[in-house]
């Protein structure tokens, strides 16, 4: 049995909407082992994004603990969490979220600006990340000059350039055509197989989910190992 890299213990999360409290995550406990490729599935509004945000340290649970590589991230202050994210987590979003005024190179370089690396060291890292996603010929292109699939590959390069242990992806193929989606999924599989990254991917898409080693299902804030009796 491999070590769990993420250990989630009894977390819950609710949102306040006016005077109403909407519970989104109910008492979830589970481990993610090192090197796993986990797919989180579930209907829209079931809390997938919320759970992913909690694991990635961009949101805090109302109760419970999340321990990542031995660090209880629920206890970290805002700025500690910020530094922790920069080092430990790579992010891939549905809508790529590249900075429109920066080139592919600069977008990928962005997370490295917070590291103590020199300019030439940064350049080396950026180039190898862009080589992994096969976009060396698009270095100086702005996001607008790239296709959706290419933008998502730039985003993947940005996610891996700091060499984080964990990569989280929120519906990374949700906005892509079939061909681009396949490219992106191939890349993620490769990151998992070849580079040993632990990947947590939220998806709607069964074909995408099948690439994962583990699939978990969220339904109304509860986590299951098999789909609820809906037609997922």
């Amino acid at each position: 049995m491999k070590e769990p890299v993420v250990s989630i213990k009894n977390i819950c999360k609710a949102y306040q909407k006016g005077s109403e409290t909407i519970p989104v995550i109910h008492d979830i406990t589970f481990d993610i082992i090192d090197g796993d490729f986990l797919s989180l599935m579930g209907p829209s509004g079931s809390g997938k994004t919320t759970l992913l945000n909690l694991i990635a340290g961009i949101d805090k649970p109302d109760c419970g603990e999340i321990i990542v590589s031995g660090i209880n991230i629920t206890r970290l202050s805002e700025s500690e969490l910020s530094r922790w994210r920069a080092i430990n987590v790579g992010f891939i979003f549905q809508f790529y979220n590249l900075i429109p005024v920066l080139t592919a190179f600069e977008n990928v370089e962005l997370p490295l600006l917070l590291s103590p690396l020199s300019k030439s060291q940064r350049r080396e890292h950026v180039i190898s990340a862009l080589r992994v996603v096969d976009l060396l010929d698009r270095i100086d292109h702005k996001p607008k000059e790239l296709s959706g699939g290419q933008q998502q590959r730039v985003a993947i390069a940005r996610a891996i350039v700091t060499d984080p242990a964990i990569i989280v992806a929120d519906e990374p193929t949700g906005d892509l055509d079939r061909k681009s989606a396949t490219d992106v999924l191939n890349l993620m599989t490769r990151l998992n197989d070849e580079f040993g990254k632990t990947i947590i991917m939220v998806t709607h898409d069964m074909r995408a989910a099948k690439r994962a080693k583990t699939i978990k299902y969220l339904d109304k804030g509860y986590l299951n190992d098999s789909p609820a009796n809906t037609d997922l």
Partner: peptide, 13 residues
């Protein structure tokens, strides 16, 4: 606002 959120996600303060 979306870009600022991305900056923060990446660890910018």
């Amino acid at each position: 606002s979306n870009e600022y959120a991305v900056f923060k996600t990446l660890g910018f303060r």
